[in-house]
Nucleic acid binder design. Structure first.
Lengths: 345, 345
DNA sequence: CTGAAAGCGCTTACAG
DNA sequence: CTGAAAGCGCTTACAG
């Protein structure tokens, strides 16, 4: 418990504290003999520099605050993994905090992180208001993903969600589907709104009329997808395919279908959004719009690192693409299917 | 960027730094007028105390180090969620780091955390050697889960994995299965070893001979389960059920079965271990041995908090139980199934 | 109830 | 190449 300090090391090695600090940080040349003496002392005493003292002296923490909505989400998990990966290479430690889908918690996290003097902030697909974010950005560099936000000190990185929504919907249309349901994301999520827009735009282009009864909101989680699926089935409006605003809801939806005895893709085609790594392991493997979430994590970390270095963040968001697997199929017995899903409701 | 300090606040409020510190921490009575003046100054200046200075002065960080193997794992995700939840209620901030399934990284994480002066350490289902852990435990309280480790300063919390392995296997035996394959976890994971032991013990009790050809190792991840499944099928040794040492491998296994045209549970019954929240959403919903991972997180955090308080950690690990869902079924056409799975190989 | 002062453990000009 | 000294921003006995 009685941890040794730099002065203990200095005494043992017969040098000054300054010298110990220099070998610790490699910040200046030190005579080879002293260097060795210090290193030996450090090893023998098991000395571990106190990051608080260091941070207080330097004004830097070598830590990055990362706020997502949940530590146990597959979506945020992949994002955090990307962030962790690129931060590690540069000597920064990420501190992950969860906003739990409400902006109060999100703001609390940010304050905590600022007190801990993180050198920068990544708000990964958050929902805190733009004004608040802009305020915080006056104190430290911040990058936001999943939205576009123009303010000094903030860099935003987001994928073309609308194009993704269009891609998914067009794929279903190409397979002959006309009655395509949509399970939307939370209304206040910018990316969720964009995906809905893409869905409607694809419908328009194909001359398919938009039916409000085929659109129902979800919460981006499995349970929300399941519930949405049940609502859809109860609605009585026939459909042969459903596009879900994210993969997790697509998983949940399929449980609802399963309970009704409906099979994917035989009875209903399903498309997701994200391409979580589990999408390929789901049964049937899920057709989805790929947005490389881990790569978004990498890129956001890279951008932040550049901002901390006072450089311009020169990264570009990856583009979305359709990954066709086994949850979608050409509509063959359209009438039968549609009526069957109808009857089931 | 020019953040205000406690002395700025003191000047503005017309009091001493000590007084500001007292209202900040509620550590002593302060005259109501001064109290208000200080609070006002704090608000107006947007003052945020510097956690480094505070930590240096108090010797405490109000942070807990948590090392798991991966930030994007569903298993560790649930554990981290539990930890986060109970820590939040007590004002501690968790710092999550990932060991990536190798003890070097794990040790690096611990050192980093110690430098940041965390007040305690939770090693959640890690694999670092007992000796190293015991050493670290001399510096700060540590709780380990998923293993039993007797050393001063460490508290271990683990579920009865052997009983769980027995439960799963007995369930399959009760359904009439005799040729039960086992996809094991990493050899160096104590909990993985215990589950294997449970499997063998159940077999023994039922008078079923243990067939090495039906046991193959995995890595606790989906891809490892898929690969293990392919090895099992290639082996040519017939089986009608498989017990997987965790849920993620059970998911991966089922992709391999799907690719061979084998259906669960019609052709093969599958049991997992953990009962991840996704297990209920998988298709078919997975029969599995439940160990409440989030609760293990809660409990480990509670135990650590008690240790930090110099109290005896008085928590007991939850017990495991079998959750029967739809991935297991009574063997009916045993011969046919077995030979079919054989032929497929 | 309140303030002056010492101290926490580092880093970093500064002088040599 | 090296050391003495000041300073980072708090907290906390201590004295009143």
């Amino acid at each position: 418990m009685n941890r040794s300090t730099i002065s203990d090391v200095a005494r043992k090695a017969g040098v000054s504290e300054s010298t110990v600090s220099r070998v610790l940080n490699g910040t200046a040349r030190v005579a080879a003999t002293k260097q060795r003496a210090v290193e030996l002392a450090i090893r023998e005493m098991g000395f571990q520099p106190n990051a608080f003292a260091r941070g207080l002296a330097t004004g830097r923490s070598n830590a990055i605050g990362v706020v997502t909505q949940a530590i146990d989400s597959p979506f945020y998990g992949e994002g955090m993994h990307g962030i962790e990966r690129t931060l590690q290479a540069s000597g920064y430690t990420p501190i992950f905090m969860s906003g739990h889908w409400n902006s109060d918690d999100e703001e609390r996290c940010i304050r905590e992180l600022i007190q801990r003097r993180v050198d920068g902030l990544i708000l990964f697909a958050g929902r805190l208001g733009a004004a608040r974010i802009a305020e915080f950005a006056q104190q430290l560099p911040v990058v936001v993903t999943g939205r576009t936000l123009d303010a000094p000190g903030v860099f935003s990185l987001s994928v073309d969600d609308e194009a993704g929504g269009r891609l998914a919907t067009e794929h279903l249309i190409d397979l002959g589907h006309r009655r395509i349901a949509f399970i939307a994301g939370p209304r206040d999520h910018p990316d969720a709104q964009a995906r809905l827009k893409g869905y409607r735009s694809a419908l328009d282009h194909a001359g398919i009329t938009y039916l409000p009864a085929l659109v129902t909101p979800g919460d981006f989680r499995e349970e929300g997808g399941r519930l949405a699926g049940e609502r859809l089935l109860a609605m009585g409006e026939p459909f042969t395919a459903v596009f879900c605003a994210n993969d997790q809801m697509a998983f949940g939806l399929q449980l609802a279908l399963h309970h009704r005895g409906l099979r994917v893709p035989d009875d209903i085609s399903v498309v997701g959004f994200d391409d979580l790594s589990t999408a390929a392991y789901f049964l049937p493997p899920l057709t989805t719009v790929r947005q490389p979430v881990d790569q978004m994590g990498d890129l956001s970390a890279q951008a932040l690192l550049m901002m901390i270095d006072k450089r311009d963040p020169a990264v570009r968001a990856p583009s979305v693409s359709l990954v066709v697997r086994e949850s979608t199929r050409k509509i063959s017995l359209a009438g039968a299917r549609a009526s069957r899903s109808n009857r089931a409701a």
